[in-house]
């Protein structure tokens, strides 16, 4: 952990806007931001660990516990909402036996409801590991996830 985190910090040492960049890279590396990583960052950047947590915990995409292997972001913001996002959410929750915000039992998916993915021309939409799927129907949403299971 020590070496990996220090390596990430060194990569951003010269950046002016380092903290977010470091946190992103740490999260990419470990799947979440471990407490020990925060301590190392604090030491290296001469900050207090609490100051880093104060910043990091503000943002909705930073997480501090391990999550499922795939991240599914379902948009329920206004456009997606009026175009049926609720139905999709309900269907996914039934199908995968979770509520939004949770991880499936097998640790495969973590589902999150999000406020706007910026693809409203294709509403309703969801994003799986950064890839966008638009013009969803409940069936299609399930199908997409089942397909990527194989």
């Amino acid at each position: 952990m020590e070496d990996k985190v220090v390596e990430i910090i060194e990569k951003h040492r010269k950046d002016d806007a380092k903290l977010l960049a470091i946190l992103h890279d740490v999260q990419d590396k470990f799947g979440y931001i471990p407490e020990d990583a925060i301590k190392i960052i604090a030491r290296e950047l001469k900050m207090k660990k609490g100051e880093i947590y104060d910043t990091a915990s503000f943002y909705s995409f930073f997480r501090f516990k391990p999550e499922g292997r795939h991240e599914v972001l379902v948009c329920d913001c206004i456009v997606c909402h009026i175009k049926g996002a609720e139905d999709i959410i309900k269907r996914l929750e039934d199908e995968f036996k979770v509520t939004m915000g949770e991880t499936t039992k097998d640790g495969k998916y973590t589902f999150k409801m999000v406020e706007g993915l910026g693809h409203c021309e294709e509403s309703p939409v969801m994003m799986v590991d950064g890839k966008l799927y638009g013009n969803l129907t409940p069936d299609r949403a399930v199908e997409i996830l089942r397909r990527c299971e194989q």
């Binding site: 407490e35 925060i38 301590k39 207090k48 660990k49 609490g50 100051e51 947590y53 104060d54 915990s57 503000f58 501090f64």
Partner: peptide, 20 residues
């Protein structure tokens, strides 16, 4: 001392020490 900090945001903002 920078011991007490904020966690989360909005209505969920709360006071914690360090990394909770």
């Amino acid at each position: 001392n920078h011991v007490l900090v904020r966690e989360n945001r909005g209505m969920n903002t709360r006071i914690v020490a360090g990394i909770n």
